[in-house]
Simulated scan of single mutants.
Amino acid sequence: MENHGAVIFNGNGYSEEWHAEAETRGLKNLKTTVDSLPEYLIPQSRELFSKYGVFNEAELESRFEVGVEQYVMTLVVEANLTAEIAQTTILPAAIRFQTELAQNVGALKAAGIEADTADPVAVSELVTELRAGPAGLKVAVAGAHDHEGIGEATYLRDSVIPAMAAVRAAADALEEVVADDLWALPTYQEMLYIL
């Protein structure tokens, strides 16, 4: 307990309280895969794995390189799919809904009824956001080719993940307002409350 008690914590390991506590205990806080992969190569890891015959130097290097490569390949696939789904599934549904709203406003105005344009304006703003997202994501993914190894993984973490998050934020906002009959994907509500 004297040697290893610093790592014992029975609270919420994701809370800010634990992050602060871990820092006071001198523990590393490796929040991402990119942060943790280089730990294979630190002297303490090399010594530990070789001492117990788990991995030799070449095997540790290999684990590190394979981990980086898997991270990069997975993130590039996820980013490309995010852009594709946004462009081919979500954006068309949102545009159809936007068109329905605009037609409704036009029909009301033609009938001499004052139309509320708040919904069409809000949907149009979200459509504009979503339209920009995949383009920005593709530019971010293309920039990854300027880097290699852990540098490429770091670039993807810092540039591509935020770009994916921006696409997702616009898509999530649209999911809340687009009519269900136009939304081709399962909604969060449907996934959470499937009977």
Rank of each mutant, 00 (worst) to 15 (best):
N3V: 06
N3T: 06
H4W: 07
H4I: 08
G5Q: 08
A6T: 03
A6E: 04
F9A: 04
N10V: 11
G11A: 02
G11N: 01
N12H: 07
E16S: 04
E16W: 04
H19L: 13
E21T: 07
A22E: 05
L27A: 08
L30P: 03
K31N: 14
T32D: 07
V34A: 05
D35T: 13
L37C: 10
E39S: 15
E39T: 15
Y40C: 09
P43S: 14
Q44E: 15
Q44G: 12
S45V: 08
R46T: 14
E47T: 11
E47D: 14
L48N: 15
L48F: 15
S50K: 13
G53A: 14
F55Q: 14
E59A: 11
E59H: 10
E61V: 13
R63G: 14
V68K: 07
V72I: 06
M73C: 00
M73P: 00
L75F: 08
V76D: 06
V76F: 05
V76Y: 03
E78K: 02
A79H: 04
A79P: 02
L81V: 14
L81N: 15
T82H: 07
A83F: 11
I85C: 09
Q87C: 12
L91A: 10
L91N: 05
L91I: 11
A93S: 11
A94E: 03
A94V: 02
A94S: 09
I95K: 14
Q98C: 11
N104D: 06
G112T: 00
I113V: 05
E114S: 03
E114G: 03
D116C: 00
T117F: 00
A122E: 06
S124V: 11
L126V: 14
T128H: 13
T128R: 12
E129L: 14
R131F: 05
P134E: 09
L137Q: 03
L137N: 08
K138M: 04
V139L: 03
V139N: 05
V141M: 00
H145Q: 13
H145A: 13
I150P: 05
I150K: 02
E152I: 10
A153R: 03
A153C: 10
R157H: 01
S159G: 05
I161C: 06
P162F: 01
M164Y: 03
A166S: 09
A171C: 10
D172G: 10
D172C: 06
A173F: 11
L174Q: 08
L174M: 07
V177W: 03
V178M: 06
V178E: 02
D180M: 00
D181P: 00
D181Q: 01
L182Y: 11
W183K: 06
A184I: 14
T187L: 00
T187R: 02
I194N: 15
